[in-house]
Simulated assay, not measured.
Amino acid sequence: MATIYYVGCDAAHPGDFVYDIPEGHDFWLLILTRTPAEFWVDGEIRPYPANCAALFPPRRKILYRACADRFVNDWVRFASEEPFLTETALPVGVPIPVADPDYCRQLFRLLAVENFFDGDYRELSIDYLLRILFHKLLEASRTTVRQPYYHELLDLRKRIHADPGYPWSVPVMAEHVHLSPGYLQSLYKSTFGISCMEDVIQCRIQLAKERLVHGRQRIADIAAQCGYPNVEHFSRQFRQLVGSTPRAYRKSVNEASGSAR
């Protein structure tokens, strides 16, 4: 288990901010930058962009500083002897670009909440959150090359998955990321391994399956909520992906659920 000494979110500092601990701490320090910064790496100060994570083990020199008008970061000081940390393949003392900084910031905020409250499962929750955070950072450290507009595409994909019923089209999605429709389609497919419209359709059908199983709405209403004003088109696309009509799918799942009781 890990012991958190302190966790801070959205900590803002002036442009002359410097964090210099020549002998390091007696605990681990993990920071996530939200603005550009300069770090001491391999004997020299180097500039790094915003949205980088840096892990410092105990008794390791720490030096980073602002390189703009202000410096904003999330950070956590903690102790742990868990192998996922002590034997980590994550580079130490070297900032790495984070693929999904918003997700990692949410993990920092959850760590702060769990550390503040003294619940029965506090230590276990903190341990799980740290493991998830380190897994995300390991993924980031192993990805050396990212597609152009990666963060813009990631934000678009989050919007699609959060609201698949929105009237998405390639021109609408292209407008969201300020790219041409053709360039968007090429980048999206090479980045996520699926075309943008295929992603929309899969999200819509997944939402429809959930509504069919867990609700009593009419199929026409579910179709409209999932972005299909035409119920025949919805039924045809649902059957192509699922292998049965929406009505047959609902019936088969309900029958299977009833026999399992």
Rank of each mutant, 00 (worst) to 15 (best):
G93T: 06
W40Y: 15
A54C: 12
Y64T: 14
P47A: 11
E87W: 01
A37P: 06
E87G: 00
D74M: 06
A68F: 03
T88N: 09
P83R: 06
A37Q: 12
G43P: 02
F84H: 11
D69C: 04
A79R: 14
E82Q: 12
I62N: 00
G93C: 09
F78T: 05
L55E: 02
E87P: 00
N51H: 15
Y48M: 02
R46T: 14
K61M: 07
C67V: 13
I62M: 03
L85F: 09
E81M: 14
L90F: 13
C52M: 09
A37V: 13
A68R: 14
F78W: 11
C67A: 10
F71V: 07
A53F: 08
R70H: 10
E82R: 12
L85Q: 03
V72A: 02
L90V: 07
R46E: 14
A53E: 00
P49N: 15
E81F: 14
S80T: 14
K61H: 11
T88E: 03
V92N: 01
V76F: 07
A53D: 05
E38Q: 13
A37R: 03
A37N: 01
C52P: 10
E81D: 13
L90I: 12
D69Y: 06
E81W: 12
E38T: 08
F56H: 09
I62G: 00
F71A: 05
I45K: 15
I45P: 07
D69P: 02
R34C: 15
D74N: 10
